[in-house]
């Protein structure tokens, strides 16, 4: 009972331990702690908001099912993110055919109107960047998120997606070029609006 009274002041380790004991009140606190961050992950990996919500709901339940496997409670921040990313990938593995992840997509040559890609990227707000990434085909979107945002290596990406490392590299290259092309097109439209 003492534990429940002071639940709002629990540290991360105690919170994780209480969740491991299936304490429903601790689970609510845990959910509140990570919900915004994990919904952000889902939005990045999903094509639409409704798909992101599906992934989020199922992924959260998966986290509570697997939380007993978390040995080091202090690493909970990165652990929950990893679980959610993997669930998002699984979600698309179910609907995206393997050949779409393996390629071949048509080669997209890199044709930038500027020599400084960072300059191009800096023109856009987060929401536009996100929107553009979401418009990419499943295979490209997953690889770009995994490589550029979440910092996975090609070997790790190959393991997660069940593809060979070379495919991961080529998918990233094509996805990157398509992203920049789309952003450039959006940039031109932005200029035209002004």
């Amino acid at each position: 009972m003492k534990l429940f009274r002071s639940k709002s002041k629990l540290g991360l380790s105690e919170l994780v331990q209480a969740c491991q004991k299936q304490d429903s009140r601790a689970q609510v606190l845990f959910y509140d702690r990570y919900k915004a961050k994990l919904m952000g992950v889902c939005i990045r990996y999903a094509r639409t908001v409704s798909e992101a919500e599906d992934i989020f709901q199922e992924g959260m339940l998966k986290i509570f099912q697997k939380i007993t496997e978390l040995k080091n409670p202090q690493s909970a921040d990165s652990w929950v993110k990893t679980i959610m990313i993997r669930y998002a990938v699984d979600y698309y593995n179910q609907v995206t055919r393997k050949e779409n992840l393996q390629g071949p997509y048509e080669d997209i040559p890199l044709e930038l109107g500027t020599n400084d890609p960072e300059d191009l990227l800096n023109k856009f707000e987060v929401t536009v960047l996100l929107e553009t990434i979401n418009e990419l085909p499943d295979g490209y979107r997953l690889v770009i998120n995994l490589y550029f945002v979440d910092g996975y290596t090609h070997a790790e990406i190959a393991g997660i997606l069940g593809i060979v490392e070379g495919t991961s590299r080529s998918q990233l290259l094509r996805g990157r070029n398509l992203l920049l092309k789309k952003l450039e097109q959006k940039g031109i439209k932005q200029y035209e609006t002004f």
């Binding site: 919900k35 961050k37 939005i43 960072e118 990227l121 550029f148």
Partner: peptide, 22 residues
């Protein structure tokens, strides 16, 4: 490599801590 680094820096700074409340 330069392009990849530029994209990584931009996307990580913008999206790594991207949050949205359900």
């Amino acid at each position: 490599e330069e392009i990849n680094d530029a994209i990584r820096r931009k996307l990580q700074s913008s999206l790594t801590d991207f949050e949205r409340k359900p």
